[in-house]
């Protein structure tokens, strides 16, 4: 490619805000890197509190993602493939957690799954199961806010997949469930994977619903974002280190998804 395309003039009225916008997005991350205590980093990373919070975060985000996949993929299938009255309403309801402030989500979860909540009291009396302020509660809070990402991604993939493959499967003797597992799911596997990664990233960063519903107990419900918030009040350096870890994880995810979501020029 020796010939370069004729340079197109970019209006200054667009260039300036665009540049400012980019700076605004990148500068805080640069600040994080500049202020990082690089010399003491290895020691700080191995502090027990940090590792505990990191492990809890990774575990709860993973379990929450699994929960979202198990419940969200069938939900996405229902929205994409079955016509039923009120489908638009259901689709709108699914996306509510996307726009709902997470703290409100946490309060709502407390009202339902809290010890005196609608389902919580029944769970407590019948099974002796308490969800709020437990690790399971963290998973529940994360799944609540992250599930829409998975459902939307998978529904999009399902709508993009040619439904005639499913008809072909039917003519070969496959019932609807077999068709789903043998044909539909393999066809939309990349979409499910992308949705699961987005979902996992959202769960990993979840703060508001978690602190409201599950509290902030180190080793039990204190995930990385909560640890960052707590550290910020006492030890700025520790907050920076924890933030760096979360930043690294985010960048790795972005790189993994590059081909699918970002690099589509």
């Amino acid at each position: 490619m020796s010939r370069t395309v004729r340079r197109q003039r970019v209006p200054i009225a667009l260039l300036v805000p665009a540049g400012l916008g980019l700076t605004f997005l990148v500068l805080p991350l640069a600040g994080l890197l500049l202020r990082a205590p690089w010399t003491t980093l290895p020691r700080r990373l191995t502090e027990p509190g940090v590792l505990t919070a990191l492990r809890l975060s990774l575990e709860t985000a993973t379990v929450a993602t699994l929960l979202c996949v198990v419940l969200g993929v069938p939900l996405a299938w229902l929205l994409a493939r079955v016509e039923f009255p009120g489908r638009r309403l259901v689709r709108a309801l699914v996306t509510v957690p996307l726009v709902l402030p997470p703290v409100v989500g946490g309060v709502a979860l407390l009202l339902v799954f809290g010890r005196r909540g609608l389902i919580g009291s029944w769970l407590d009396e019948t099974f002796g199961v308490t969800l709020p302020f437990t690790t399971a509660g963290v998973v529940l809070a994360e799944a609540f806010v992250a599930m829409p990402f998975l459902v939307i991604a998978v529904e999009g993939a399902l709508r993009g997949a040619d439904p005639r493959y499913e008809e072909a499967a039917a003519t070969l003797g496959a019932g609807r469930f077999t068709t789903f597992t043998r044909v539909t799911l393999p066809l939309v596997a990349p979409g499910v994977a992308a949705g699961a990664v987005l979902c996992w990233a959202r769960a990993l960063g979840e703060f508001g619903a978690t602190i409201t519903f599950a509290g902030n107990y180190p080793g039990r419900t204190q995930t990385m974002p909560l640890a960052v918030y707590l550290a910020l009040e006492t030890d700025l350096q520790a907050a920076i280190v924890l933030s760096l870890i979360l930043l690294t994880v985010s960048v790795v995810i972005l790189a993994a998804l590059r081909d699918r979501w970002v690099g589509s020029t």
Binding site: E167, A170, G173
Partner: peptide
């Protein structure tokens, strides 16, 4: 239903 018809 299609999956139970002897049709290819």
């Amino acid at each position: 239903p299609p999956e139970r018809r002897p049709v290819g």
